[in-house]
């Protein structure tokens, strides 16, 4: 049986990889994909705790996280489309209309 710590460390690593993507990529679609990766790392933590504590609540919360992630992806991609339509670019550095 795999110890719980292995799952937790694996999900910490996956989460950190997602953070790299959000910090350094200059393509909005890849940034959204990195956010999905981070959400999945957290889901893995929830499922691992649910298994090791013998409680179904973790799995139910993962269910809700999936619904929220789907809504987030839909809205995020709609915003990407409308930004691309205005600026012809997917570079987040060029979105500085609100920058002081």
């Amino acid at each position: 049986m795999v110890p719980l710590e292995y799952y937790l460390i694996l999900s910490a690593v996956i989460f950190a990889i997602g953070v790299i993507g959000v910090l350094v990529r200059r393509n909005l679609i890849v940034v959204l994909m990195s956010i999905e990766l981070m959400l999945n790392a957290v889901n893995l933590t929830f499922i691992a705790f649910s298994r090791y504590l013998g409680s179904m609540q973790g799995q139910v919360i993962v269910f809700f996280v999936m619904a929220v992630a789907a809504a987030e992806a839909v809205i995020g991609l709609a915003i990407v489309i409308s930004v691309f339509r205005h600026r012809r670019s997917l570079d987040p550095q060029e979105m500085q209309l609100l920058k002081w």
């Binding site: 937790l8 460390i9 950190a16 953070v19």
Partner: peptide, 21 residues
């Protein structure tokens, strides 16, 4: 991100998680 992973891993592996499921 490396710093984040290291601190998260240290934090998570330090908890009093049940060894046996």
């Amino acid at each position: 991100a490396l710093l984040l992973a290291a601190s998260l891993a240290a934090l998570l592996s330090n908890g009093e998680a049940p060894a046996d499921p």
